[in-house]
Structures are given as structure tokens and as C-alpha cells.
Amino acid sequence: MTTDNVIEISGLRKSFGAHEVLKGIDLVVPKGKTVVLLGASGSGKSTLLRCVNFLETPTAGTVAFNGKPVGTPKGTGGERSYSDRELRALRAHIGIVFQQFNLFPHMTALENIMEGQRAVLGRSREEAAARAEALLARVGLAGRGGAYPSHLSGGQQQRVAICRALAMDPDVMLFDEATSALDPELVGEVLRTMKALREDGMTMLIVTHELGFAYHIADEVVFLSEGRIYEQGPPEQVMLHPKGERTRQFMLGHSEFRLPHLD
């Protein structure tokens, strides 16, 4: 069976101890589309993103990647077991970019981008370096490969982190508040990079607080509230004409994203 959905999430639940963060999520990310997750802090959007590549293990429910459910069923409560090997292979196909960049500080930008290619994809040093150089050039950092992360600005570090993920030739890119740790004047360069990715046809699942950006880049906006999908649809619908009261309040609460007719 083939599918055009890179990610299909169904009945996903995640608890930390007694606290249930995700209370049954169903969501698809179609190939070539950009889905943006919005919601107040604590609504579970970052946890949901981290469940997609199993940095967090879901308590119940399934994540299917390119039509194939990850893991095998265990017990009767919707639990699944995941082998280390399967998750490693999965993560190699899913790029993730973090709020805090998380570059490896003891490696140069180039080495950061080469590590996964060498260790996981088995590329040669020359091949990996060439790919890294090409990616750096693409995000406007040509020639900066020899720099250590501490000698790069936040925006540059985040672009290197995007290259590190892209170097694995992922089928989908996850962005976990990729601009939230940046100084305001550095946000633009990272957003431009993400926009260019969309234009190249990359499939993306994005958690962001940049509502203006979300509006322009999203094919679909998903508004999460208290661990559930509260409202979803095209950005014009969810962001300009929200049906639910919580969505409306959220949009109103973000002054940088003015919706004149809601005032």
C-alpha cells in the first residue's frame, strides 16, 4: 500500500508520570506540505513533535512513516515496543532542528554536518565534506565550515543545525521552535532558510511562535490545546477566522500578528 502521507499519527498519547500531555492526537503530514503546530506553552506541541522521531516514546497510539507503522504492538492498551535499530533507521530519515541549536561544540560546522553522514549513511569523508560544503553554501554560509559553533552567531548556528539535518537527505524536517532562542534581528535569516526549503518541496512539521511566518508558510495550521487538537485547517481559516474561542483568544494574544477584524 502506498500513501502520500510522510507522517500519519493516530491515537497518540504521551504521559509523563501521572501527567498526560497528549490525549489522543490524529494528524497527517502529506508529502511536500508544511504543517504548523500552534498553541500555548504546555499545550503539548513540542512533545508531539518529539514523538514523531521518538525522542519521546509515545505512551500509546501509532506513528506511521511513509505508510509503515513504527514499532510492533505490545499488550492490549495500544502500547507498542520499538527496537533501537528501527528507531535509529527512522531518525536518519527525519531531520530535526532544536530551539537551542544543539550543535556539537567540539566540532567545526563542517564536522557537525559530516558526522551523521559518515556514521549513519556510511559516506566517505570526501563525499560527506562535499555535501556539507554545498549545504552551507545553500544557506548562505559558504566558506564558514571551519568555524566552531562558539564563533558563529545564533542565526548562523541554527543554519548549520539545519544543514546537519538536511545532510541526511530526510523525507521530512521537524522544527521545534527553531527561532525562539534567537535575537530578533537574527530570526529572519533562519525563517528565510525554512521558506526556501518549502519552495524546494520539503515536507515540514513546524512548531513556532512566529505567527506571521506560520501564516505565510503553512499549508495547514493545527491549533493544540491541553493535549488535543482543538482546531485545524488552512491558515486563513484557523488564524483569520477561528471557530473556537480558545483559538480566537490565542490569536488575539499575539499582538505581533494583528487581525484587524478581530479587534
Partner: peptide
């Protein structure tokens, strides 16, 4: 935690991430 997340995020196995990411630091 971010270093472990990043290493796992590109699909590194435990021995490799120890050797090239965690232990050197």
C-alpha cells in the same frame, strides 16, 4: 540533554554517540 537529543536525532547509535559526541566533551 540537547547533545544527546541532537546525536539521536541524526540516527547515531549509542556507542558512536558516546565515542564522538559525549565522551570527547
Amino acid at each position: 540533554k540537547g547533545q544527546w537529543d541532537a546525536a539521536r536525532g541524526i540516527g547515531l547509535g549509542y556507542p558512536r554517540m558516546l565515542r564522538t559526541i559525549i565522551l570527547p566533551q
